[in-house]
Each structure stands twice: as C-alpha cells, then as structure tokens.
Design a protein around this nucleic acid. Structure first.
Lengths: 149, 149
DNA sequence: TGGGCCTATATGGGCGTCAATGGGAAATGG
DNA sequence: CCATTTCCCATTGACGCCCATATAGGCCCA
C-alpha cells in the first residue's frame, strides 16, 4: 500500500446541533484516493468503537464465513456481528458523518468524537475511552515487547 | 548505516506565533542524505515524547502486527498505538515542523521544543521534561550493564 | 592568528486557500 | 403533517506557500 493511503493519527471533532461531525480531512483524502464512496460502518469486535472501512472489508468478512459450515454456531455468530452489527453510510457534501443511535449506543459518544486511524480503516471513539485504551496499550506494551530499535 | 547518517545531539528551539518550529539543521542534513521526505511521527511508547523517523519504521511495526491474530486484543492494541498514535508529516519550505495538538497534548510542549537525537530517529520533548528524564537516566544508568570493551 | 566578510540558519510575517463548523430551506418518509 | 434528513451557502480560523531579516558561525585573507 502506498505510504499515503493509510489511515493514520487521531483527532477529536465536535458534533453539531444536528448530530453531524466532520471526518478529518486526512481521512477523507485517503477515501478519495481509493475512490471509496460507500462506507461499511460496523461495531468493532474488540473495542467499544465504531470501525469505518470500504465495502471490500465486508466482502472479506463474508468470505471468511463462506469457509465455514453455514449451520455452525460460529458462522452464525460471525454473521450476526458483521451483518447485524454493520451498516452502509455516506458522507454528506461537506464530508460529515451523521452520529446515529447505532453509533452512539455502542460507543457512548455524546458531543465529541475521536477519530483514530487503524491502517486500512479508521475508528470512532468516545474521546476519554480512546485516551484510556491507548494509555493501557502503552503500559502493557512495555512488558515483554522490546522497544523499537 | 554511515557514520554521518545518525541523529546525534540535542538542541532547543522556539515555537513561533503560528506554531512552527525549525528542525535543527544537523537533523535536516541526515534526512536529506537518506532522502527522507515523508516523516513518520508517532507518540513514543515509553516516554512523553514524539518520535520522528522514516516510513520504514512504520513498515517494521506493521510487520510485527502481521505476525499476530488480527482479531486478538494484542494486535488491536498495537495498531491503536502505531496507527492511531502516528501520523505522516512533512517539513515546510524552511525546514520547519508544525506543532499540532497531536504533538502538544502528548508531550506538554507549549512554546519551546527540545530535539533529541536517538540514532536512527530523533524525538521532540518539552524542554524541562527532557532535562528531568536525562538526569534520571544518568543516575540510573547502566545498572547491570557491562562496561564497553 | 585576528578581523571582516558572507552564507546559512533560525525566525517573523503576509496572504490566499481550505477545513471545520453553523444554519436555512427544500426534500423525504413514516 | 410533523420530524428528520439532505442539500446548499456562510463564516471563521487554521494552514500552506511565499518572501523578508537578523544573527551566528564558518571561511578567507591579510
């Protein structure tokens, strides 16, 4: 992947009176370069965060399910997450995203959103939850893993 | 690595009214010699400092993640640090770097920045924090480490 | 070796463009 | 018909790109 086509960094933006929030311009640039109009927005499997990616991520998830027995509990649970826990959305003309209850209930987001790059996608976090989780990750990292050379 | 292509020494520069600060010329020379235009700027894992390196450092981090189960909490937390805690930046025409909130909030930097060479990368510190950390490092240094041959 | 010149570094600021945000009004749909 | 949502347009502050200036340090020459 090109250097520039990765979602990096974090930024916190305000939600306006109509429930809209501007997606940071660095992230919009990546979406533009990869010609991504439709956004697959899903409840993250690990964190209390909403993940935003292109439709190809949903395709990948569905292929993973396809490899399993369709009647197995695992395949059913996975479908429940990626289909029931996901939705397609679009940005408005100014590059803003609507903060629906689907997003708010899962994240605890109220009036501000922290956008966090994750390489091939980005996430929406309740600001203090993001702060807390990042600090915890940093703490745990000092155990066992060698620091960067 | 060539003798000259290492980041050495430290210097403190002023931040101007627009939030810009000149990267010391010795560091810019190293970047020029290694043909590094895009800078991978990330929140350090150990210190309250910002680390600045070439894109190859991000590549190395991503390879470490690639070895793990993508759905594991460990891999996700690591991505939270290297993707969510990192950003690509460029110097302006005069070799200055913009001190964004991404940098200020993490380091406590307000009006001055201490640049510290770290061999294959350099760091941005709040001056007094650097002072303190360096003194402490001197005191605790090399306990258990054999002297150089 | 001392002095002066000269270039590069660090820093300041103008100005145009774009991003983030706010709000009105039309369109949608339940 | 009312409550949202969508589509515009406006505002303000931040940022990128450009040029200006002072000073320190290097360099040359006497």
């Amino acid at each position: 992947m090109s250097v520039a086509n990765r979602f990096l960094s974090n930024a916190t933006n305000r939600i306006d009176a109509k429930g809209r929030v501007s997606v940071p311009s660095v992230f919009r640039s990546v979406l533009a370069r990869t010609a991504t109009e439709e956004l697959y927005v899903y409840q993250d499997f690990v964190f209390p965060a909403i993940s935003v990616a292109g439709p190809e991520v949903l395709d990948r998830f569905e292929r993973m399910i396809g490899l399993q027995d369709p009647f197995s509990p695992e395949a059913n649970k996975m479908s429940l997450l990626i289909h029931g826990g996901g939705v397609f959305m679009k940005l408005d003309g100014e590059g803003r995203l609507m903060m629906t209850d689907f997003i708010r209930d899962f994240t605890g987001i109220t009036d501000r959103v922290t956008f966090a790059g994750r390489g091939d996608h980005f996430q929406l976090w309740e600001p203090s939850a993001f702060e807390t989780m990042q600090q915890q990750a940093r703490k745990e990292r000092m155990r066992g893993t060698p620091p960067p050379a």
